[in-house]
Design a protein around this nucleic acid. Sequence first.
DNA 1: TTGAAAGCGATACCAC
DNA 2: GTGGTATCGCTTTCAA
Lengths: 340, 340
Amino acid sequence: MAKRSVSIYDIAKLAGVSTATVSNVLNQKGNYSEKTRELVERIAREQGYVANFAAKSLRAASTKTVAILTPDVSNDFFSTLVLDVEGRLRDAGYSSYICNTANDSERESAYVQGLLSKQVDGIVYIGGTTHSPIEANVDIPVVHIDHTGSTGVAREVFVGNDLPRLSYDMTATLFDRGCKHVALVSVSASLYRTAEHDQAAGYYAYLEEHGIVLDKNLVLEGPHRQTSLLEAEHLVSNCLEDGFSFDGVVALGDRVALGVVNALKAHGVAVGSDVRVIGMDDSIYSRISSPAISTVNRHTAAMSERAITALLEMLGGAEPAQTHIIVGHDVVERETTLGA
Amino acid sequence: MAKRSVSIYDIAKLAGVSTATVSNVLNQKGNYSEKTRELVERIAREQGYVANFAAKSLRAASTKTVAILTPDVSNDFFSTLVLDVEGRLRDAGYSSYICNTANDSERESAYVQGLLSKQVDGIVYIGGTTHSPIEANVDIPVVHIDHTGSTGVAREVFVGNDLPRLSYDMTATLFDRGCKHVALVSVSASLYRTAEHDQAAGYYAYLEEHGIVLDKNLVLEGPHRQTSLLEAEHLVSNCLEDGFSFDGVVALGDRVALGVVNALKAHGVAVGSDVRVIGMDDSIYSRISSPAISTVNRHTAAMSERAITALLEMLGGAEPAQTHIIVGHDVVERETTLGA
DNA sequence: TTGAAAGCGATACCAC
DNA sequence: GTGGTATCGCTTTCAA
């Protein structure tokens, strides 16, 4: 039905004006009479004219498009951020490419290469640990969310939580509820987070600060061989079966926490009283679990807001006000720390 | 660091050859000597040359890019499909735009308009109920996954399950396990699925076929006011509190099933024995629930495979072998129908 | 207020 | 084997 391709030239011919005038009218720039405007607009509509983006951006050397890179859109924490970022960019008149890198640096290289070729105006990098070597040559602004470690890009901004502080608060919450022996469970999210070290730091810091001797048997770290949920379940089961005991668990992630809760329940432990558990991310998992899991809200909306503000500043040619932005976090207590 | 923009012309000048030759070398087309190849490739690399996609596709009138439209990437069922589709397209040499429509037809119109302008070669439409009026004018191939109802596009293919059959099998599973009074719970997924009617059809068909009188009090349908999980929880709670009883529940969706299970547990019902429950989608929710929820695997991998095959056929200019493709489904029984 | 024409970067045809 | 050049669709001076 639709024409093979209606160009601005076709419209110009039909309207009996020049392409320059059509362009002006359609972009509401320059001068033209009301009569011309009506004529051109009507014909464009009739012909189902759609501006050719390639031609446009070839000329303009700007695409009004940014790329959102993330390791895993199917992860609740990331998908929330991705959608939020995408929405804000759309509001600002930008389109987004959403790219799922799966933390595969080869794939990431291919993406970045492609994006550069597609002349994206900027990049939003959410989570992730890998760094494409190509990235060092990127000359467009980059914003990182929940992701540390510079890529060597000229203009980049980091937005995230104060992770050591966050895990410190998680740990404190458990001790404040009376726990004496608190375990740390971390599924080596090398797959997802670059910040294991930072995340665990607060746990160690709390213990040290309060003169509590670290029991290494209670530091459960697993590789990301399977879903973090199952991995965590195994770690905790093994720990219990090996006869170690604890009355609190800091779980680095809600999926991890859910695995912990499942393992505890399977061993007949009363979660929320015998053992208290706190997760992180305030995701859907923490809410659908029963008992409901205490967790930490990481203010993702604030993250994306700050990130996009910074990106837009850079896209506008300005220097960003700050290059390292820390957003707050809130401990959200539910049944696993408060009891039923 | 990187040059403002290195064009093929710059490379040609530096290499002392013509742009035509550079183009040939870089695209491995036409003829050129080994010596020229080396020279050109070296200089291109040194200069960090990246082909300008806009210029390329302006000329080629093809972008090797397709759009993936879906109502909600954060929904497990859809995100699985999106990632799968994206991967297959990448393997076939296509890039994807992932677009989250939120079932907002206005936003969808804006997207489709933008995509047309960006000259995407095709569209993959996953789920969703709305239809942009613009779509009728689309002259590129469209593939629909889990989504019925034509858009009036010239070249379109539908891929999905046999939904009436699917809900028939769900219902049969419960009766086969000895249930006598089976309820149907559906959170008017108008937000997500266009196919409520088809989905419920199998339930009615089974009853009728087996001479079972329909008890309308056991057909629980709610709007999608809140998350389907909570909505389902309320529906079931209300039903129990109103004194109606049942020993089986067909839940149209795993999130719905999870809500049902939560409500039953809250009312002290033994799920899996007193009342059996079956969900649909075989998503993470059915596995993380305790008791684990029986569900239906919808063969999403097969869906995306068939869909992309059909799309590639159309992109290649061929007529698709079939325009309506049905993929199979499997009932997966877990604790909520088998018992503990 | 309008138009002619240059040019964005890459490709492809056709000469050489 | 290599190069000149028209062309894709649009924007943007600069003149008229």
